[in-house]
Amino acid sequence: MTAYLLRRTGQAVVVVIGVMVLTFALIHFEPGSAARATLGTRATAERIAVFNAANGLNRPLPAQFVTFVKQALQGDFGTSYSLHQPVSALIAQRLPRDALLLGLSILLALAVAVPMGVYQAVRRDSAADHVLTVVAFTLYSMPDFFFGLLLVALFSVQLHILPSQAPQAVSVGGILADPRGLVLPVVTLTLVSLAGFSRYVRSSAISTLAQDYVLVARAKGLAESQVLRRHVLRNSLLPVVTILGLTAPAIVTGAVIAESVFNYPGMGLLFYQAATSKDYPVLLASTLVVGVATVVGSLLADVAYGILDPRIRYDRD
């Protein structure tokens, strides 16, 4: 177990460094553009030079990278070009909102996907299985934004039961004080990730059901529901834990869309606005935060897997 953890952590560190290099390289691909974005396309070369010097953009790229890493490690990501606030403050303000939105949707998606997938596996090739398969595929195949707007059209515009705008409160507590506004964004994100999860649970449960120990459990005289609860569920959910880590990027993509659709003031919206206005400090920092969060997420998933699977937990060295 120790060796397993060390190896995975080592890999995660390498990937975080890779993410830093990648994002930095991408954003500094076109040196003059930050100045143009901030000062306008008609800015003179002189003004651009002044801007670049002020922001340290005229130094060699490796030197800029070193500075960036040093400052990033101290939590200093510079100042937003467009919002004129420290980037770290912006992110600190928005991250908890994303934790709320994404956490709720993932929990909800799992709460539906696990029973659904196991049910489909048990009733494999039945009419219900086919119907749920089609539902899952349809959900999966809908563009996130279209799905969100359809919900708005139905519940806000037609039925007037839910607001189309997400709550704009600054704190998580404030958002929770008005949970109705949270419903549509959460439902959108849930349904989008539901499909992937349920398909995975289904195929995992199908392979578990074919294992010898399931037959052994039946031979002991266990009822089918007991067999499922005691022997199938845990074994088929083990691989799903690692999938959780791997789906993080897809969920972030969904968050960018959902936040723009519902005007939810989270990282996704921040990022989208930064991308369109070429606000490089914000772009760089938020990409980095999302990347690191993804790496840490999948690392945690693997650790959880190691704890849940006794074959790894009790592995000597």
Binding site: V216, N235, R311
Partner: peptide, 24 residues
Amino acid sequence: LRRVRGNDIAMVFQDPMTSLDPTK
């Protein structure tokens, strides 16, 4: 029938490597 299984009639299978639940 379930009351008979594992109680009056029990069964031992071929492959001990796959016949035990790895998580229990």
